[in-house]
Design a binder for these strands. Structure first.
Length: 421
DNA sequence: TCTGGGGTCCTAGGACCC
DNA sequence: TCTGGGGTCCTAGGACCC
């Protein structure tokens, strides 16, 4: 049976999460900022209506925020991740096959659902709203790309009430005409410009374009997108997403770093976090890359440098990862520079249970594994975490998040209080 | 003063081989 | 004098997604 894709997408997800726990925010313009309170990463509909732009640095808009009465929040990823799980668990009950596509989106396969798809999706939407407080929109189509397009229009069209079905080919024509080509899933701003250059302005024009021409301009993915718009399925539902190929932990610093020690402490912290993620997936890394950089906005010439190390045996022990990261940072550091960001990238990931042991291995693998298990288990609980000495205790470079709200659902201290009247 | 973070895939070009 | 061409692998960079 051919699949029928339904894309469930949370509306303004981060802003909606903040609103769930603070009814005072209902109907108010809300924006959520990225790490370090850097730029805007989410806006409520009210903020969009005020034309607060996405992705702009917050410090440039402080005046607007005040004047327009916009509520501003630091990002609160622990909260969003937990709310995401709640939404996904709710949605999963409505279809036998689901792909969690991102923190706020899931594709369902509705093939075989006996009811009218729109009515069924209305039920999904209402249930998610009732059980989690998060509003969602749902787009339905014979391909993922058409479901994406349907979702976009569902959000934009008030009469759709958050649900739009594009399974019927006749409905596709009118709908695709209303979508700018750069907004088609997989095209993006660059691809959009290229297509505009040959007179293709909207999704309908792309669907009717010459395939060979599109392939030459955008490569095979452009052609796939064209087919998908025509209703020919190129992308399937990935219920079990393939294992990660790389793990990245990188951050900008809350304050510029000028000493080797601080740069090492910060980067050791990223390495430790990368190790946790690695072990969560039961993997080990064959290769580690470390990079450091200064800001592009400084007077001085920007400095970027990276070093890549191949482990003799794939590594998953935080001590080994940290030691390697420290050595790299030592090589990459340059006195007199104001460092803005560093990052740790783990690649060539392999299954941790299938590592070829070495004759001259100095690390006792069994002992290492047990130690890491204990540390990880302790750090999973709420309470003071175990950290490595190399991470230091002076975290003056740490993230700024001046306006973070409580971690309502993931920290005992932050549980909301309910008062009876 | 303050400009995010985490991922994937494709392509072009060079090195190398036969 | 004639000065190939196809294949593979690797890497860097670019583009996309959220």
């Amino acid at each position: 049976m051919n699949p029928i894709f339904a894309l469930v997408d949370c509306n303004n997800f981060y802003a909606s999460c903040e609103r769930v726990f603070d009814p005072r925010l209902k109907g108010r313009p809300i924006v959520v900022l990225s790490n370090n309170d850097g730029c805007i990463v989410a806006r409520s509909n009210e903020a969009k209506a005020l034309e607060i732009p996405m992705g702009r640095p917050a410090f440039k808009l402080e005046e607007d925020f005040r004047r327009l009465g916009v509520e501003v929040f630091s990002s609160n990823y622990a909260l969003y991740a937990d709310m995401s799980v709640r939404v996904m668990e709710t949605v999963a009950q409505f279809a036998p096959r689901m792909e969690v596509y991102s923190i706020d989106e899931a594709f369902l396969d509705l093939a075989g659902i006996p009811q009218d798809a729109t009515a069924y999706c209305r039920m999904i939407r209402d249930t998610v709203r009732q059980w989690t407080g998060i509003p969602v929109s749902i787009g339905i189509g014979p391909t993922k790309t058409l479901a994406k397009a349907a979702n976009r229009l569902a959000k934009r069209t008030p009469t759709a009430m958050g649900i739009l079905d594009l399974t019927d080919p006749a409905s596709q024509i009118e709908a695709l005409r209303k979508i700018e080509v750069a907004d088609v899933w997989g095209i993006g701003p660059r691809g959009g410009k290229k297509l505009q250059g040959i007179g293709i302005a909207d999704a309908l024009a792309l669907r009717q374009a010459d395939g060979e021409r599109v392939r030459r301009l955008l490569g095979v993915n452009g052609l796939r997108t064209l087919y998908e718009l025509q209703g020919t399925r190129c992308f399937g539902l990935e219920e079990n997403p393939p294992a990660k190929k790389s793990i990245i932990v990188s951050r900008s610093f809350g304050k510029k770093i000028e000493t080797l020690q601080a740069l090492q402490e910060a980067t050791a912290t990223w390495a430790a976090r990368a190790g946790e993620k690695l072990r969560q997936e039961n993997r080990a890394a064959g290769v580690m890359s470390v990079y450091v950089m200064t800001s592009r906005f400084e007077q001085q010439r920007p400095y970027f440098n990276a070093q890549t190390v191949t482990f003799a045996r794939p590594a998953s022990d935080s001590r080994e990862l940290i030691a390697t990261a420290l050595a790299c940072v030592k090589n990459l550091f340059r006195p007199g520079l104001r460092f803005h960001k560093s990052g740790v990238i783990l690649q060539d990931l392999v299954d941790r249970d299938h590592i070829q042991l070495g004759l001259f291995d100095r690390l006792d693998r069994t002992q290492s594994r047990r130690l890491m298990e204990v540390v990880d288990r302790i750090n999973l609980r709420s309470g003071p975490p175990i950290f490595w000495a190399a991470q230091g205790t002076q975290t003056e470079w740490g993230l700024r998040s001046a306006r973070r709200l409580p971690r309502y659902t993931t920290d005992w201290k932050d549980l909301p209080t309910v008062r009876a009247r």
